[in-house]
Structure formats: structure tokens, C-alpha cells
Design a protein around this nucleic acid. Sequence first.
DNA 1: GCCAACGTTGGC
DNA 2: GCCAACGTTGGC
Length: 162
Amino acid sequence: MPQYWLMKSEPDVFSIDDLRQRPGATERWDGVRNYQARNFLRDQMKVGDRAFFYHSSCDVPGIVGEMSISCAAYPDPTAADPNSPYFDPKQNAAAPRWYAVDVKFESKFESPVTLRELKAHPELAEMQLLARGNRLSIMPVTEVQWRFIQALRKREKLKLQA
DNA sequence: GCCAACGTTGGC
DNA sequence: GCCAACGTTGGC
């Protein structure tokens, strides 16, 4: 059984369209510098898992598409790259601290399921994304939440056609 | 731009 | 181990 995730990115830095346009529609998800997010990524993400792509710190924050995990965790090369904004001077090649996975574009929602809309549904009240003060960039989504959001997405589509 | 919330750092 | 200071996230 696949697991479900939500992964945040600032669209100014890396957006769902950027992912779609990458060769093979695949890209390394690197730069994660939070231990809790790192642990999810390193210890639990498996090839074939599904993830929502979330746009944060932008005009309309929300879920904009869907991707899959195409390569399980490996040491994040940006941690050892002095030219990378994600360079970690305390990194140690013998005991890597930070990890990356590869993600593959699956689909872009015709209309995003916005943060505002997620908050409006009591069924999603337990989402970690909506927890007070939550700042995690990678977090699990339950299967029930996943399905509910997929249903919302279809409703958004109908609304567009109406 | 503001600010609440949270994680990390470092002195003690 | 405590905790103040600081930096970052991210919605508004």
C-alpha cells in the first residue's frame, strides 16, 4: 500500500509547472533542513508513494497537483555544495545529515484546492497542515484525507465547467 | 510588512 | 539541562 504525503514548495523557487517541465517530469526534492521532515523523507517515504504538491508563501496557498516518489532517500548533495543555498557547513559525508528523494509529476489540478478551502471542511480538521503553528514542509496525509481532497478536486473541476 | 509560532543555538 | 536570543516559516 502506498503512503500519502504533502510536500510544500514556494512556487517562486520551484513550482508544479517547473516539475512538469523537467526531463522525465522528474526532479530531486532537496533542501529539506528540518529534522522532522527529514525523518519522514528518509525513514518512511517509499517508491510509489503519492504526494500532494503544495504551493506556500504565495498569493493563493494550496494544493496544486500530485506527484509520486520515484527514488527513495539518498544523501542530499546540496548539503555538501558550497555554492548551494542549502549548503550545510556542518555536514559530514561519512554521516550524512540531510536527505533528498526524487519525485515525478503525476498531474496538475485544473483548479487548486486552496488552503482556504481545506480549512472550510470539518472532515480535514485533523490535517497536520492545518495544525496550529505547523511549519513542516513534508508531512503525512491519511488515506481518508487523500481521497476527500481528490473528491474536492473533482468538484472544483465541475465548478469551473459550470 | 507584520507577526505568531516554532526550531536552533549557545552561554551558563 | 535551562532558557534567552535569534532566525525562519508562512499566512494574512
